[in-house]
Design a protein around this nucleic acid. Structure first.
Lengths: 222, 222, 222, 222
DNA sequence: AATGAATGAGAATTCATTCAT
DNA sequence: TATGAATGAATTCTCATTCAT
């Protein structure tokens, strides 16, 4: 009996598929090209995956596993919300550098408005992070670490928006160029970007106009 | 020499193209269907645009013209940077509601990593807003309206990121679903969203940890 | 405007299709080969026929039109049932020589047990001839031209069976060879075959054992 | 040297093949499915049969063996030619009911105009029955049991044609439907069909117009 | 110059056949 | 020697692009 597709081969086609799907889009990606890139024949590919659709799903699943894994790592961190944010920012930067293609694919799917995945994907992925962030924000609010004049959902939404855009700015040609447009060489300096974003977030998270006024008043002599 | 298409005809195909591209995606959009919908024959379409790619690019350009127009309106406003931000947020909301298809198309562009236009278009489009925002921030910094501990480029970048994501959250199926994941029904309440985002921005723009400490100290009796 | 497929071209592809379907069978027939043989590109073929199935149906319809036409010619003849039979036999011979491919196709379809056409075809084609023959036999019986001890349906069935086999014996390789096996060179001699078959039929049609006995008795002197 | 497949295994694949070929047709029948159904691996199947074509041929051969066997049983019968015909008709009916798939396959063969086996098989199979029938007719003619105004070959041919069509009328969907078209419910009544066919044959076999006239004359008083 | 019919390259998918194990 | 996984040629069908009218 011939050995089944080894784990390496399997991983290879999936990676090839992710790259091709990310690069060309699900429609223009060619199963033939993927098989070749993955080092096997179309035939086997179709032995393991019923059709393009099924194979695409498998590629997607692989990408999402990595995404979820990354999320879970951030999730596990305790401590001050800002250090959580820092962990998230760093994770985003690392993930974007390491799994460029995964994010390209993810970005493409989010852009394909008519895509049959939009809804399911959104619920599956964003469900995790939205829940995570909201909970974190709620508990931080209780301990007085964050302002209390913002809706936790919207608060989490704005935060995640900043992370998403950062992610994309590392992987899509368009967003990378845009990043450079805005920031010039600073775009290459991960440390700088992280530090500045955290400073931006710290303020947004922490200080409400009311608080500041209040603190000032508090500080005043009676 | 070709008799130019009348302005109406041109507008008609481009709008037809925008609608079709936004709906079906660049791959599944059919040049034939677009020509028909625009009241032209494929032949003429190909007289004016070298190929599908070029035509897509033209549709995009038209969408972006509208975007630029909206930007210019904001640009013209003077006054405090926060009222500028408010104008921008409102503009984004209005534009997203009115020109759904334009934004879908724009989103697609940003996701098409292999698109040969990505780079050029990024420079062209984002160049405007980045310049605008940076200048505004610089002048606001001089007048003490915004913090001075952030790189103006990154500052502008973070701001624009929030606007971009808001935009997309109104037009793509994926981002709309994500919006709901995070915010529930609040996603439908433009006023609430605008107000909360502005509050978030105000803090991020205005208060640095140093300032707050400083102000507290300043407020203390000698 | 380019001319639509001319009638000749249309006829040409259909003939090419009939030939290919008859030769290779509906599955193995290649649309590409048919288009080439018919002198046009696959593209046009698919412009005029939605898919292989639809094109096959069109080929079939063309064949059946010819068959029906031939039947109608026989049908119109009046007179003695044996002269009707003679007309039928001659028609079968002429048709088989002229429209070899049509009959090959027809034979193939009748052999494809699982084919989706079996039922419909049978009803459509055989309905005509069975009705025709039965009516003819019934009237011939009334006028005493044929025996009256056979069920008209079975009678017609046996008659048509002989015609069918004769038909096939002129067109399929197998049946032609079989024909030669049985009859040697006589198989080539249409006149001889027709004459002998008619003699065979005359007896089968006309004389029942009872009649013969009866006639003998009748002829006897009292 | 290959160890031969055991008789059981051989019989199993061939039967599986016959069933699959009869059901799906030679094109859509899958070698893989047949091997599986027959309890072998594709590999072995291809060790024993060069290709699909060759295997199909072997299945056919097996079917035909059964046919020949049935023929031989009829052959052995002596006696009046009409009782031989009766035996043949009954054998056809029994065989058709019992070995449906064999006949379907045989029918397919006769329809496959391009089949490279058509010729050879026709010679092989039809050679037997044509020889048998011709001899029988010749001896019957000598003993005055059948008319003498027909070519023995054509005579045998017409007779076999009637048997063949009867056979097919019991097994192919098309011919079964046609049978019903012509005969209605009578098609189900084997006894009736046999009786009527024999009556038809008796006349065709026995009475020539000349004979009848002659007998009449003979019967006349001098 | 405009038309839209025709072209044909290219993509998905199947399955007979091979061949490494 | 048996296995059944892997191969890849061949087929259907689509649609961007061309070009005869």
């Amino acid at each position: 009996m011939l050995k089944k597709l080894t784990q390496e081969q399997l991983a290879a086609v999936l990676e090839a598929g992710i790259a091709e799907f990310a690069e060309k889009g699900p429609e223009r990606a060619s199963m033939g090209a993927i098989a070749r890139a993955g080092g096997l024949s179309v035939g086997v590919l179709y032995k393991y995956y019923a059709d393009k659709e099924a194979f695409f799903s498998a590629c997607l699943e692989r990408s999402l596993d990595a995404l979820r894994q990354a999320l879970r790592e951030i999730e596990s961190r305790d401590g001050h919300i800002l250090s959580g944010a820092e962990a998230a920012v760093r994770a985003v930067q690392r993930f974007a550098r390491e799994h460029n293609a995964y994010l390209k694919l993810y970005l493409r799917l989010t852009a394909d408005c008519a895509g049959p995945y939009a809804r399911r994907l959104a619920d599956e992925i964003e469900g995790i992070s939205s829940e995570l962030y909201r909970a974190r924000i709620a508990s931080a609010r209780e301990s007085g670490d964050v302002r209390d004049d913002l809706d936790p959902g919207l608060f989490a939404f704005f935060f995640d928006n900043l992370l998403m855009m950062l992610q994309f700015s590392y992987c899509s040609d368009y967003y990378r160029e845009r990043f450079r447009c805005f920031c010039g060489g600073a775009a290459e300096d991960d440390e700088l970007v992280a530090a500045q974003l955290l400073r931006f977030l710290e303020s947004a998270f922490t200080f409400s106009r009311a608080d500041v006024r209040h603190e000032l008043r508090e500080g005043e002599p009676s």
